[in-house]
Design a protein around this nucleic acid. Structure first.
Lengths: 335, 335
DNA sequence: CACTTTATCTAGAACGTTCTAGGAGACGCT
DNA sequence: AGCGTCTCCTAGAACGTTCTAGATAAAGTG
């Protein structure tokens, strides 16, 4: 059955319509609506009134085509990550303040990060802020010749990078655990996820530095529940109790949640028999059952720095201090 | 907030550059690169070669300004929702097939859905697919006069809506529980979240219909862990055991996770003493500890229908059947 | 008075595409 | 030859903005 032809959408009002309705030139209408200088109070009122009456909204494609000012920012991130969601929230707040709009691109498991980047650029954004775990630095640098590109959560040489001091975060957890008497520490790493390498390296160093008697072991896992669960489950089954780690540091809170399932399954008590720490202090960490000690990244500061870097000419890199949030999963008795 | 100008970015090559380099007119270059008819094989080769050499990529703003074909779709959703992330993944896959790009807008707790919609439209999308829990139908209808707007997961009169048959889903869970002998059922509802009302109503009806002896109670909660936890915790503390529900149906998996924490805290065994079911069959449901019976929405079908509706002139509404996924949390012994 | 200055406005050229209308040849048919 | 009809190509007008370079008139300055 042939489709009825589309009910041709009501054409949206253009600047010319507004100008005509208010009896001024297109140029003047543009001046008024841009809040630029050079229009009398009377014209201002008339044009604004007409614009409001017609429900005029400027066409950002035409605007950005002509002026390369779309007042729009591109944000690339992964959809399932709680931390990314928090960052997006904070960035939206920042953008509001600067009068910018934000559009998003989702980098996914098998979605080409380069393509996401291109899509955003094609849509006319003035700058891109993004978490690009795998995109080669060279490509990011290349693109950054066209417009500002800010790397979030990952240090990329050659472009402004806004990151958290991973070494400091891991150090805080490790020394917290060592202080509580733990000597055998285990880290479930994040595989190829962003900052996984930094945390892995920092874990080794911190463990070595913290105490002569402390030892750190690393288990290759991933940034989500599933692999952390599987990996830790196997570890707990195989490892004799005497040699078993007494504290586990997961790559992030999601992984910690998976780890917790494995621990529960093994019949171990948290924190009495084994301690567990996460990373990112996402909403998961605050769940009552998890009650997870975690490392809080300073989302607000990260967002603000990223926005600043995106808006200022040669954006500045910055590193932000994380903060350990101690909860029940590492030894405090729960209420 | 001052916006400093970027250091003169390397201007990206334009169609005119390509035309010049290959010795043809701009119009012909356009024809070739659009794969339109009317160019000789030889010109095709030359233009394509030149385009490749220069690294030309068409400017989608100019293109869409002129032709209203940006080959870009807008997708509006909430960032923290696993189901939305799954839908996005599926829609990306669909878009790939149709040669469309996707840009996202995040509807958030306090972010104006209308504004997100406008931002996407301004960026030049050809159609918008979105989960708009709160935006008044009238506004959606209004906007849909300008371009196709598809409502996902929420039935909106006047625009194509692609939804799941909530009544059927709830019915499946309820009759599953009743069959297992439960007579006192409890529903933690989703508050003002999308489809919360439908599930609430369906729960009442299903409980009444399922059995003369079955009774259903509803507790007002919300679509995430926190409120579900708090509400159920209070319920479990106050309600005498004899009157207590023996099966809980949470609004979604996240809420179920929160509910599970409350159940664990109360020292009750799942599924022996109390059964728990979620909704959406997200990755949370599959967590070993949760092992959650849940209702799977047919994400692939939803995505395909939404895409179809977006691309075809008067898009068609459709309702898709969900499927109950039985896991350990409602009575099967775990391995 | 002749002049600069200032404040307000406007025409028209951009921006990088697509699309319309048509032009130049080449070929085939009466 | 004359005429149509292909195929390939191109000039130039859109699209809806912003921006440059004036134009106009009122007001200030000597």
């Amino acid at each position: 059955m042939p489709h009825a032809s589309a009910p041709r959408p009501a054409k949206r009002p253009t600047l010319a319509d507004v100008a005509r309705a208010s009896g001024v030139s297109v140029a003047l209408a543009s001046i008024v609506l841009r809040e630029a200088e050079g229009a009398s109070g009377e014209s201002r009122a008339r044009v604004k009134q007409a614009a409001a009456d017609l429900g005029y909204r400027p066409d950002s494609r035409a605007r950005s085509l002509r002026s390369s000012r779309s007042r729009t920012l591109g944000l690339a991130l992964a959809l399932g990550e709680p931390l990314h969601a928090e960052l997006a929230d904070a960035l939206y707040a920042q953008a509001d303040q600067s009068g910018f709009e934000i559009i998003l691109g989702a980098t996914g498991r098998h979605r080409d990060e380069r393509r996401v980047l291109n899509t955003l650029i094609d849509a006319g954004v003035e700058a891109v802020i993004g978490v690009f775990p795998e995109l080669p630095a060279a490509q990011l640098v290349q693109v950054s010749k066209q417009l500002p590109v800010i790397s979030l959560l990952r240090k990329v040489k050659g472009i402004p990078s806004v990151i958290t001091d991973e070494a400091a975060g891991v150090e805080q957890v490790v020394s917290h655990l060592v202080q509580r008497g733990h000597t055998r520490l285990l880290h479930l790493d994040g595989g190829s996820a962003v900052s996984a390498k930094q945390r892995r390296d920092a874990f080794i160093e911190s463990a070595a530095r913290a105490s002569a008697s402390a030892s750190g072991q690393i288990l290759p896992a991933g940034p989500d529940e599933a692999t952390a669960f599987a990996v830790l489950r196997e570890y707990l089954e195989k490892m004799p109790q005497a040699e078993r780690a007494t504290a586990v540091l997961a790559f992030n809170d999601r992984a910690a949640l998976g780890a917790r399932q494995a621990i529960d399954l093994a019949g171990l008590q948290v924190p009495e028999q084994i301690c567990l720490a996460g990373y990112d202090d996402s909403e998961f960490a605050r769940l009552a059952h998890a009650d997870l000690t975690s490392v809080r990244q300073d989302v607000a500061a990260l967002a603000q720095a990223a926005m600043q870097a995106a808006l200022n000419s040669p954006g500045a890199s910055s590193t932000h201090a994380p903060q350990l949030v101690v909860r029940g999963s590492t030894g405090q008795r729960r209420a």
